[in-house]
Simulated scan of single mutants.
Amino acid sequence: MQRRTFLLGSAAILLLPMPSIADTGIRATLYKNPQCSCCEGYADYLRQNGFQVDVKPTNDLAEISRKAGVPTELEGCHTMFVDGYVIDGHVPVNIVRRLLTQKPAIDGITLPGMPMGSPGMVGTKTEKFVIYAVTKDGKAPTVYATE
């Protein structure tokens, strides 16, 4: 009788839904231009790396970035908010994870433009990525990481 109970209990456990990576992932909200497809590629890249990404098309991307502390000349192609930080552009996931782990006293990070070979972009990486730390207090951006 014990063997039968064990087998039935084991079968019941196997039938329970298992949490997926998405169920335990870091939540992020990504604002993008409605016509931009590389932003969707970046969101997919983050999802493949365990993030839960809510994509919100907007025509006010520059204003969202500005209010978040990202200088115009350092804007990326989309603006994302995660765990109280702004992340602008195609920042590699290892840099995003470092930011979320270290929790520095900044408002966020940005990878300006749309560099070839960056996550979500097509092509081969042709240059070093320079990711800047930004703040809303008017201080000049500083280099946060290079890759």
Rank of each mutant, 00 (worst) to 15 (best):
R3S: 09
R3P: 02
R4G: 04
F6Y: 05
F6V: 10
L7E: 05
L8F: 06
L8C: 02
S10H: 07
S10D: 05
A12H: 04
I13W: 09
L14R: 15
L15H: 01
L15A: 15
L15P: 02
P17T: 12
M18N: 08
P19E: 05
P19N: 02
A22K: 05
A22V: 09
I26P: 00
I26H: 00
A28L: 11
A28R: 03
A28K: 06
L30I: 10
Y31S: 01
Y31M: 06
N33E: 08
P34A: 13
P34L: 14
C36T: 07
C36L: 07
S37C: 04
C38S: 10
C38M: 13
C38I: 14
E40S: 14
E40W: 03
E40L: 12
E40H: 08
G41T: 10
A43M: 03
A43P: 07
D44S: 09
D44K: 09
D44A: 05
Y45S: 06
Y45W: 14
L46M: 08
Q48T: 13
Q48E: 09
Q48D: 13
G50Y: 09
V55L: 04
P57G: 11
T58S: 12
T58V: 08
N59H: 15
N59Q: 15
D60A: 14
L61H: 07
L61Q: 04
R66Y: 10
R66C: 04
K67G: 08
K67C: 07
K67T: 13
K67H: 11
A68I: 08
G69I: 06
G69N: 03
V70S: 01
T72K: 14
T72C: 03
T72Y: 12
E73S: 03
L74V: 07
L74E: 04
E75I: 13
E75Y: 04
E75S: 12
C77I: 05
C77A: 07
H78L: 00
H78I: 01
M80Y: 13
M80L: 15
F81V: 04
F81K: 00
G84P: 03
G84C: 04
Y85H: 09
Y85E: 06
V86G: 00
V86T: 09
I87K: 05
I87P: 10
G89P: 06
V91Q: 04
V93G: 09
V93L: 11
V96P: 12
V96C: 08
R97N: 14
R98A: 14
L99T: 13
L99A: 07
L100E: 08
T101D: 12
T101Q: 11
K103I: 08
P104S: 03
P104G: 05
I106E: 01
I106C: 05
D107R: 11
D107A: 13
D107N: 15
G108A: 02
G108L: 06
G108S: 01
T110K: 00
L111E: 02
L111K: 06
G113S: 06
M114G: 04
M114K: 02
P115M: 03
G117Q: 04
G117Y: 07
P119C: 14
G120Y: 05
M121D: 02
V122L: 15
T124R: 10
K125D: 05
E127V: 12
F129S: 03
F129H: 10
